[in-house]
């Protein structure tokens, strides 16, 4: 099926994965997986639970060892980087983990300041102001700033994790199920935020999600992970024509149809 393949023809892909093989012991998670992420797009990544979305993200950011294949981010092979180049690369991306992964001994605002302190040389008051701004930007109440992660609700942890990922205004953002566990109003506000940041900062987003509304609202393209590969990448209307049982069930099942209908009603005029 032309047009829905996981690879792009152009050369300016921000992330380029080729022939990736990962696994744990006997279990193979990805088998010769290919994927390209275009500059400035929001790529949604979907797939059933346990198909290896999080593992793929961890492999791209270098937390998961790979068995074969090449992973290029900003045109650089991540595996071959020396320490300085790797650090420079990390400066340019932000990662939000599925579980938040906040530093438990720092307050929320201090968590956000951690990357700033590491990479920038800004005056202390400005850092505090920027951290405060990020706290409200992700929709946390102002009281959340001095709280410790153990004092936050599940959804608040998610937002704090996002704020830390956005701390340095990265060019590339990895989000692992950012809207899971948020109420629908917050989730919509979250979608809007990502969209504004993408359009104003030229952000590229690698977005793992099960949230069909998010897929419809903000994703430029959607990649479907199944059978240890990226089966297809395309816009949702394109994927609707893709002939695979899981894909059909996913987008055309009752929830998929409801989300699609919601989009045509509310989102089109923009």
């Amino acid at each position: 099926m032309p047009g829905l393949g996981p690879t792009l023809d152009e050369d300016d892909a921000v992330i380029r994965v080729r022939g990736l093989v990962t696994g744990f012991g006997e279990q193979i998670i990805h088998d010769k997986l290919d994927l390209d992420v275009r500059k400035g797009e929001i790529l949604g990544v979907v797939g059933g639970s346990g198909t290896g979305k999080s593992v793929l993200m961890r492999a791209i950011v270098g937390l998961q060892s790979t068995r074969e294949g090449s992973i290029k981010v900003f045109g650089e092979e991540t595996r071959d980087l020396d320490a300085a180049a790797a650090k420079d690369l990390r400066r340019r991306w932000g990662v939000m983990f599925q579980e938040g992964a906040l530093f438990s001994s720092l307050s929320v605002a201090e968590n956000i300041e951690v990357p700033m302190r590491e990479f920038l040389d800004l005056p202390e008051p400005l850092m505090d102001e920027l951290a405060g701004y990020k706290v409200t930007m992700v929709g946390l109440p102002v009281e959340a700033g001095p709280k410790f992660p153990s004092e936050l609700s599940g959804g608040m942890k998610k937002r704090a994790g996002l704020a830390r990922a956005l701390s340095l205004d990265p060019l590339l953002l990895f989000l692992d199920e950012p809207t899971a566990g948020l109420d629908p109003i917050s989730a919509a506000a979250f979608d809007e935020l990502i969209k504004v940041l993408k359009e104003t900062l030229g952000l590229t987003v690698f977005l793992i999600t099960h949230d069909l509304d998010t897929l419809h609202a903000i994703c430029d393209r959607v990649a479907v992970l199944a059978d240890k590969k990226v089966l297809a990448v395309g816009t949702i209307p394109e994927l609707l024509t893709f002939d695979h049982p899981w894909v059909r069930e996913y987008f055309s099942g009752p929830r998929g149809r409801a989300a699609g209908a919601g989009k045509t009603k509310t989102m089109e005029p923009a």
Binding site: A109, E110, E113, Y133, G145
Partner: peptide
């Protein structure tokens, strides 16, 4: 966007 999110937030 920034202006809309200008609130006094305590850091610690």
């Amino acid at each position: 966007q920034v202006a809309a999110n200008d609130n006094p937030v305590a850091i610690r």
